[in-house]
Write a protein that binds this DNA or RNA. Sequence first.
DNA 1: GTTCGCATACTCGGATAGTGGTTGTCCGAGTTGTGTTGG
DNA 2: CCAACACAACTCGGACAACCACTATCCGAGTATGCGAAC
Lengths: 133, 133
Amino acid sequence: MKYSKATDYALHTILFLAASRSETPTGVQQLAIWQNISPTYLSKILTKLSKADMIYSVSGANGGYKLRDNWDELTFFDVIEAIEGKNSIFDCCQGQRKGCLILETMEIAEQKMDIVLKSQKISSLAEKISMYK
Amino acid sequence: MKYSKATDYALHTILFLAASRSETPTGVQQLAIWQNISPTYLSKILTKLSKADMIYSVSGANGGYKLRDNWDELTFFDVIEAIEGKNSIFDCCQGQRKGCLILETMEIAEQKMDIVLKSQKISSLAEKISMYK
DNA sequence: GTTCGCATACTCGGATAGTGGTTGTCCGAGTTGTGTTGG
DNA sequence: CCAACACAACTCGGACAACCACTATCCGAGTATGCGAAC
């Protein structure tokens, strides 16, 4: 069980945008080169993020992506959910018996993880990075 | 991101063995029918579990699988690790920069989940099930 | 009654295949800024 | 000087393909049990 690379790219991109604090939009090209991946593929990921209202795109020359307003409220959980979807981490195949004890435990474990992800804001990491600049 | 079905099958099988408290080994056939899956596939999963020393096999007629001794120490984490492997939940692709802040957060989140999984023993669930019998 | 052999009921492990999600590429269309050209 | 135009630099979205892990099946080989026949 692993988070996809797309999630990794998404988190790094969001963090990059947050740390750069650029007024002008940042192009996919630049973001892709920085992460050493294909611009076309990254654009697919950014489309997901913009549909989730975490960033928005500016088309045309000098276009690119910018963080939404109130981006300082964004958490890890938001980004991960936007990419991975809202699926639960575990399915119990024995559908007939509801109240599966195994499922219960897995859900508790997942919740503990989610608490961390929901409490970690992108903005607080961006601040840490800015300190080194 | 999801745990595989194999993990689901493994957990249910282990719990079944723990709750049944049978002296004689339980055949793959029976375990597979109970979970409504293919015996051949389940046997692959059980092979992994036996390589991880959680169960052992008794071959020949009336053969099957039995829990190891000290099975009451088995935790969710043990079973999951045996099936999913010891891989971390998240990889940071930007290998060059060690001390990635994103990776740090993800590892903390994963640890919180692992704490739950490591503290949940199969035997305590098996007791709950036995109470209803 | 003891022993041998065989059928049966299992596990084990390799080979193979379908399936679906992830990852990645290609291309055409739409949009915006910029520079150029002609009046 | 200004307007119209062309071009370049972007994003957007669909179509498509490669790849890989998960899921699943099949089969041959090995092993233990139990039963029956032969001595």
